[in-house]
Amino acid sequence: MPIDDKKPMPVDGARLIQDVVAELGWDADAASVAEGVRRLDIGLPAEDEFSVVCAWLGKCQLMHKLDQQQVPVASKQEYQVPDLIARFSTQANQSPILIEVKSKKANVLSFTPDYLKRLQNYADLMAMPLLVAWKFHSVWMLFEVRHMTKAKTNFNITLSSAMRENLLGVLAGDVAYRFGVGVGLHLRFRKDKLVNTVQTEDGSTEQWMMTIDDVVFTDRDGNRRKDVDGEVQSLITAWNLESQEEHTDTHIHLRFVAGKEGIQFAHKALVQLLGWESPSDDRLHWRGFLRREQITANVKSFSAALEAAFREKFVSHIFNQQPETMPDFLLPR
């Protein structure tokens, strides 16, 4: 791996090198160490993504990974260190919580009895609640481990049960929302000069020099708006808008409009926003986002932007999900 001396080492670069050397040994060749550092810098996508999501949603006061290099080695037979420890401003208690992170595309999440017992032993030892963060395709859920029930052998939780007991909203600040029908972005391109015409079997293709001479947003009441806050604009463009195109003799009109269908979770909007801001189509580098003071460049506070979008008549609904079973650490005392 070539070294770019113009690119500064990440703030946690020394720790990455230390972890790789500890695993490979001091006699490992430089190429192996460099590749190991690169892989660690890419990170564990599920853990890093969940950490970025919680940081962005605005209710997380502290979250970090737990070092799972246990000693003595025999302790691994009794204890399993979870992935993360966290504290949220929404908690009614003072104790942090422990979170085990999983990414599974099956509609049932399963833990072996031994694995679950070792996780719970650690949580009991620390006297902390134990939660599971589950990424199902692109959707995150967060629930207490006690909702996993024993099947024939393993302890399972179904997708529907995890959704019903989801704490990501009440604990971390996640919401679901919907834009009003007709909300959208409208661009008008003026045809300045015909550059070229190519004849085809179906007619012809024209190449024009054009100028954007009008940009306007529409709200859910159909009003044309140009006084739209920048963060609200970002939320609109991150929505799954339907494209429409109209040609006249003098202009081309491009319209990107919200339809009747669709509900978006805040944590999924984050992925959309980061996708817009990323310089390429490569997968998102979640570990890199963890180092940022402000995760998204265009939306500093998602909750404030969403409230503004509702107040300004762009968002039509905001849904705050409550779990079926409210945990003790969220109950007011």
Rank of each mutant, 00 (worst) to 15 (best):
Y122C: 04
R146K: 15
P113Y: 07
D229C: 08
A22H: 07
A14K: 15
I42R: 10
F289Y: 15
E307V: 03
S234G: 05
R283G: 09
V145E: 08
K152M: 00
I252Y: 14
Q322M: 15
K65S: 05
P323M: 02
W239K: 04
L241W: 02
P10H: 08
S160P: 01
R146A: 13
S32K: 05
D213F: 07
H267E: 09
A123H: 01
E277T: 07
Y122N: 06
F289G: 00
R220K: 12
A123P: 05
R118I: 00
K152W: 00
A55H: 07
G36Y: 02
H253C: 06
L171A: 09
I85F: 03
H64Q: 13
E307P: 01
G275Y: 04
P2L: 07
Q199Y: 06
V108H: 12
H251G: 00
F314V: 04
A305D: 04
V37T: 02
R87L: 11
F310H: 12
W208Y: 06
I157A: 03
K105G: 12
Q264A: 08
Q70I: 14
V145Q: 06
R225P: 01
T211V: 04
E242K: 09
F256Y: 14
V132M: 03
S204E: 15
L273I: 15
H251S: 07
R224M: 11
D282M: 06
K102A: 09
F143N: 04
L116V: 07
M9I: 12
V175Q: 05
W276R: 15
A22P: 05
V52R: 02
Q77S: 13
D114P: 00
K104T: 11
A305K: 03
S243K: 10
